[in-house]
Design a binder for these strands. Structure first.
Lengths: 147, 147
DNA sequence: TTGAATGCAAAATGTTTGCACCCGG
DNA sequence: CCGGGTGCAAACATTTTGCATTCAA
């Protein structure tokens, strides 16, 4: 079982390779931000910053923003807009899922992405639009609050 | 053909009734904000404010925010998050549609809501989650930018 | 008359940017 | 070395809040 971002033991991680491929530098900040996103699952830039600062107190929030933007360009992470002004980032690809955001209790449930494959295909067919499924979140009322 | 918000001619509009039902006041600002949202189709709070100010210059942006929040509670409008920090409001119900937001060019296309009815039903069945379809926007790449 | 609603200004958020210094390659 | 990357502070954009005043009922 290979890790997607960091090859166990020696060698260059996938992140480092992706950076090199674009002539960019592999800095500790970038590694730590990527790690934090992976460890946190979902996280706002602020949460990522807090997390990394436990180990590297000098990290600045702006670096986090810049790094997350970069990681998104590299296809390493995606972001989605959960409730009000909370942009959250998570690893792209493997663990993609649908976010069900309850407008009442603010709770976030994760749903199987399989449910949007049809929508995905339909939108592509009829509008030529390539839907970024990792980015998707559905807002509404969860089972509890529906009563 | 009856209008949903304002009964043609005499009598109280639906908005006024909805407000009364909750012991709230029907103020000119509330009427004008609701009208502006209807006329504009999609609009950010700022755009709504600008629009109303053409007729009532004293209207403040904070009133617009407060009013939109209220109208949303009343079920008169919904909001959705299009690209970066652009919260847009539109009338709830009748003209609901899906928003296809292109991450590249920022363009917004409107798609038939019929495409999400299956997803909608599926999410309800499997998760008990009542999806707020008017709120939905799909992010991705439009046909043009996909090349 | 009376408290809900407004307008204004200030504060709170969330995100971006300019710039001098630093460091990865 | 050298230009990309970082930290810091300040600028921005957006939304919320406190408070005195106004006005719908």
């Amino acid at each position: 079982m290979t890790d997607d971002l960091e090859v166990a033991g020696a060698g260059l991680g996938a992140l480092e390779l992706a950076l090199r491929a674009r002539g960019l530098r592999a800095t500790p900040q970038r590694r730590m931000v990527a790690d934090a996103v992976r460890e946190l699952g979902h996280a706002t830039p602020e949460q990522v910053c807090d997390r990394v600062q436990r180990v590297a107190p000098a990290l600045s929030l702006s670096t986090v923003y810049r790094t997350l933007e970069l990681l998104e360009e590299l296809g390493v992470v995606t972001h989605t807009h959960l409730s009000h002004g909370a942009t959250t980032y998570h690893l792209a690809g493997l663990d993609d899922h649908l976010h069900l955001v309850c407008r009442q209790c603010g709770g976030i449930e994760e749903a199987d992405l399989a449910m949007v494959t049809q929508l995905d295909a339909e939108v592509l067919r009829r509008y030529g639009f390539r839907c970024d499924v990792g980015h998707l979140s559905l807002h509404g009322l969860c089972r509890e609050c529906a009563r």
